[in-house]
Computed example of a mutant assay.
Amino acid sequence: MRPSDIASVKPPASKRQNLTERIYQELKERIFDFQLLPGDRFSENEMAESMQASRTPVREALTRLQREGFVEVSFRSGWQVRPFDFEQYEQLYDVRIVLEMAAVKRLCEMEPGPDLEQLKATWLVPEDQRLDHGPTVCAMDERFHEQLVEATGNGEMARIHHDVTERLRIVRRIDFTKRPRIEATYREHGEILRTIIKRRADEAQLLLKTHIEESKAEVRKITLHMIHEARLNPHNSLLANDAGN
């Protein structure tokens, strides 16, 4: 192979896939952390320069985020972080409530009873053993609700619930930026678990519904405030920083 041919050789597919995955994860984090705000517009060239990568893996990462509903593309205006659709998020929360209430009812009626030992070991702990790192507790909270559904043994219900969880993650993690919400999560999860263990289906369903609805209301309030604050501070926008430099 001539030296001039080496530059034209494409990188191995596995290497490009790894690069695409890295860019995908970083872009998702920027969206989740409000470095890229809902409604922000950008071009593939701008993002490729920001990521210090070529346009191909950037486009592949953006296409994946588009399928997941985080960004959208226009032929004329380039890419845009998808604006928050609170009506859609509230509909997804309603789906969560229906699925999880059905799961809780089933858990209270199962014979033999469900295996909740892992959940008990995580949530029924003394206060001095509780974690207070928001992102960690957020991930734990997500698994709590998924494990309740998984414990029913209904794989299709768990699959649908997981899909809803993925689509809500961008707003749900905001619920764990305030310490009182972290403390409330431990308390409310504990109450739900104890009631399931006692097989009080109606009470467990009510506790669960209240827990999710309170989180939904808090998330909307905090999200609107955080977007407002981020727009007042242009340093929160990575592309604005790059443009300023």
Rank of each mutant, 00 (worst) to 15 (best):
D94C: 03
L99P: 00
M101Q: 15
M101R: 15
A103G: 11
A103Y: 00
V104C: 12
V104H: 02
K105I: 09
R106F: 05
R106K: 14
C108H: 05
E111V: 14
G113W: 07
G113P: 12
P114M: 05
D115K: 08
L116E: 04
E117C: 06
K120R: 14
K120L: 09
A121T: 12
A121H: 13
T122P: 02
L124C: 09
P126D: 05
E127Q: 09
E127G: 06
D128P: 02
Q129D: 09
Q129Y: 05
R130G: 04
L131N: 06
L131Q: 06
G134H: 02
G134F: 02
P135K: 04
V137L: 01
V137T: 00
V137N: 00
V137D: 00
M140T: 01
D141M: 03
D141F: 02
E142V: 10
R143W: 08
F144C: 04
F144Q: 02
H145I: 07
E146Q: 14
E146D: 13
E146W: 07
Q147M: 05
Q147G: 01
V149M: 04
V149L: 06
V149W: 00
E150S: 07
A151Y: 02
T152V: 07
G153K: 03
N154D: 15
G155F: 11
G155V: 10
G155W: 12
E156F: 08
E156S: 08
M157F: 11
M157S: 12
M157C: 11
M157T: 06
A158F: 03
H161A: 05
H161C: 04
H161W: 06
H161Y: 09
H162N: 13
H162S: 14
H162V: 08
D163N: 10
L168Q: 03
L168K: 01
L168N: 02
R169H: 09
R169L: 08
I170L: 14
R173E: 11
R173H: 11
R173T: 07
D175Q: 11
T177S: 10
K178Q: 13
P180L: 09
P180Y: 07
P180R: 05
R181Y: 08
R181Q: 13
I182Y: 02
I182L: 11
T185S: 10
T185H: 04
Y186K: 02
R187A: 08
E188W: 05
G190I: 04
E191H: 09
I192Y: 01
I192S: 00
I192R: 00
I192C: 03
R194L: 08
T195I: 11
I196H: 00
I197V: 14
K198D: 13
R200D: 15
R200K: 15
A201D: 13
E203Q: 15
A204D: 01
Q205M: 15
Q205N: 14
Q205G: 14
L207K: 04
L208I: 02
T210H: 13
H211N: 09
I212G: 10
E213R: 12
E214L: 12
E214M: 11
S215K: 01
A217W: 08
E218H: 10
E218R: 12
R220K: 13
K221D: 12
I222N: 08
T223M: 10
T223S: 10
